[in-house]
Design a protein around this nucleic acid. Structure first.
Length: 374
DNA sequence: TAATCGTGGTT
DNA sequence: TAACCAAGATT
């Protein structure tokens, strides 16, 4: 292993040099992203929330369509949560959409027609953490607030030779302090985007392109020879697998759906009733038990329809779907909300998790034949 | 502090 | 293929 290089201090000459190099690199290499063509703080806010833990290429199209449906703060505040969640479908981390909606309603209720323009007021809104408050304040309002996202952590950890685990508070404080010191005071929004852009396109996690990096001259990780050792991360645990059994419970050409509770996984989204199979239980028995527990309905016939694999952050599932016919009685909201039967053509109006939407798509294209998306 | 919260692309 | 990862926030 190469000897550890000692980082030179961030004196003012070095800070000036770094700012100049990184901004020049950004001016030459910045990607043409749709949200870089607006100064509308609302539109920039939407982009920042969408970009949380979500790839730029995914956000490109979704940002455009979201803004066409909700072009301003007032429109978003006036919309139903269901419509907002439907517009968010597929983006994941659905809590983001509910916080977005709630923040818009809060601002409009207070008489505002636009976002507040300082970090503290932004930080107080739901869904605004340190990163998003600094990002909106700097990019939309030119405030001198340094962002620290995953890119900034990686770039600065490598550049400075930061050896602490990136999850530790002391490490975060050091990275934030360095980001604060480096922030280019005349172009705070561009500076923040420049460092993030550098992390996203050059100082990447696995295969950084160090020869083209504007920071290679005095980067500790580059001098050591293996930048990918930074930032230091703790090992992850293996993710468990669960079998989920769910029913497409039909009655007179309509199918049963129910809404998940607002908190927790996939909160506020609709689904076909079902749940985890227990040890020793058959898939069909699990489906019958779950449908009954959640809606009070008993299922008559049941035939396998399809199985879908889905990976979540901390576990993965195989969802086994059955075509069923509903027994007598009205569905009740026992362990779900608003269970009711809907015509298949009306399912597009409801926000569904990805696995459920896949099943709906198969339903459309194949009718009620068996299929698999595994 | 550590766990939780989605999804799709990449390796 | 399974793990890793992405412009984080909340509890």
């Amino acid at each position: 292993m190469p000897a550890r290089r000692t980082a030179t201090p961030l004196d003012s000459a070095r800070v000036t040099r770094v700012r100049r190099r990184v901004l020049a690199w950004y001016d030459a290499h910045r990607r043409d992203l749709p949200w870089r063509h607006t100064t509308d703080s609302y539109a920039i806010w939407i982009s920042e929330v969408m970009l949380q833990q979500t790839r730029v290429e995914t956000v490109r199209e979704r940002w455009v369509t979201f803004l066409s449906e909700f072009p301003d703060l007032g429109t978003l505040a006036a919309a139903s949560e269901q419509r907002v969640l439907r517009a968010w479908e597929g983006l994941g981390y659905y809590r983001r959409a509910r916080f977005l909606h709630r923040a818009a309603q809060s601002l409009v209720a207070a008489g505002a027609s636009t976002l507040p323009d300082d970090v503290e007021a932004l930080r107080a809104l739901p869904g605004f953490g340190d990163y998003t408050a600094a990002a909106v304040a700097s990019i939309a309002f030119g405030r001198r607030a340094a962002v620290v996202d995953g890119n900034v952590v990686r770039v600065l950890a490598r550049y400075l030779g930061e050896r602490g685990l990136h999850t530790q508070a002391a490490t975060k404080r050091r990275i934030q302090a360095a980001a604060d010191a480096l922030l280019a005071p005349r172009r705070p929004g561009d500076w923040n985007q420049a460092v993030m852009e550098l992390g996203a396109t050059c100082c990447t996690p696995r295969t950084p392109e160090c020869p083209t990096c504007p920071l290679r001259h005095d980067c500790v990780a580059w001098a050591e020879g293996d930048p990918t050792r930074y930032p230091h991360r703790a090992a992850r645990k293996a993710t468990p697998h669960y079998d989920i059994a769910a029913g497409l419970v039909w009655r007179r050409g309509r199918v049963l759906i129910a809404r998940r509770k607002a908190d927790g996984l996939l909160g506020g989204l609709w689904e076909f009733p079902g749940g985890k199979r227990r040890a020793g239980e058959s898939l069909e028995a699990a489906m019958r038990r779950e449908v009954h527990e959640e809606t009070g309905l008993k299922v008559r016939s049941a035939e396998p329809f399809m199985s879908i694999d889905q990976a979540y952050t901390h576990f993965r599932i195989t969802m086994h779907l059955f075509h069923c016919t509903a027994g007598a009685g009205m569905p009740r909201a026992l362990a779900c909300e608003e269970p009711h039967f809907v015509a298949p053509e009306d399912l597009d109006a409801y926000p569904f998790p990805r696995a459920n939407r896949k099943a709906i798509d198969v339903l459309r294209t194949q009718g009620r034949g068996a299929g698999s998306a595994r």
